[in-house]
Design a protein around this nucleic acid. Structure first.
Lengths: 139, 139
DNA sequence: CCTTATTAAATAATCATTCTCAACGGTGAA
DNA sequence: TTCACCGTTGAGAATGATTATTTAATAAGG
């Protein structure tokens, strides 16, 4: 009916991007992935990283997180889970609380949209920034 | 302890930005607000709109929505509520389901972050885009 | 091999946002 | 009233993230 998986070839670049992304539990931005990958493929281009992260997200191989902040972030863990973002340093971590399946149903009843999914994003201050808080003013 | 309301002067520009934002139930981007305001203040600068939307959000007069998509959006309704974003056209609407207060507590238990707040964002397809769907391919 | 189609690298272009700075405006003190 | 000050504005430059373009390398199929 719809075409979910156009099926992409696993080139060296794509494989290494995927491997590096899978290594970390953080949720790196495209340029952080670029830095990681460049240690193994020094000649890779930033555009290639962007293009392939986008492609892999479309194919469901990875997750693209459209959370607050200025940059998009990527996650090799594709099963549904929630996130928290530090309002001080922008870091994103997983929150291990159960996904509330009933939310989608509730939303469907109160809206004329066709609901496709949902995401919960907490904001807070990470332990590192909490330490700094006492000393300096948070910008 | 912390300084929540530095108290800002309500200049003509700020008042009109606030008025125009209050008129709509959509969640306009900065440049959409700029377009609205310019009909009444043709010489206002885009930078002024950005600067003041930011300022008013800091002062709790309006809400800055850091939802998915490429642009930030603003909302004159400051009480907590959830949103839905059309994955096709990017439009953002309110979702009228009760805010789940217990989420923050649950997150606090499973995380070492100091939780400050949370937001639920649904993704879906708005009625207008649903109509188009049958005909054209959604890009 | 030879042809054709993908993909990559480099780089230019775009888009949203922030910054800089000179000019302006209102407020309070002299 | 006049002056000096300080926050604010408007214009435009600068930045940062992302996307598009172009050309070259590479892989797949015959």
């Amino acid at each position: 009916m719809n075409a979910p998986t156009p099926m992409i070839r696993l080139t060296t670049q794509r494989q290494i991007i995927l491997e590096e992304l899978s290594k970390v539990k953080t949720h790196p931005t495209a340029s952080e992935v670029y830095d990681m990958v460049r240690k193994r493929l020094p000649r890779i281009g930033l555009g290639t990283v962007y293009r392939n992260l986008e492609l892999m997200a479309e194919n469901g191989m990875i997750l693209k997180l459209e959370v607050g902040g200025t940059q998009k972030r990527f996650d090799a863990t594709t099963d549904a889970h929630y996130h928290i973002r530090c309002s001080c340093c922008g870091k994103v971590d997983d929150i291990d609380i159960p996904v509330i399946e009933s939310l989608v149903g509730a939303a469907a009843e109160s809206s004329s949209y066709q609901i496709l999914g949902h995401h919960v994003e907490f904001t807070g201050m990470c332990p590192e920034c909490q330490k700094k808080e006492g000393v300096a003013t948070i910008h």
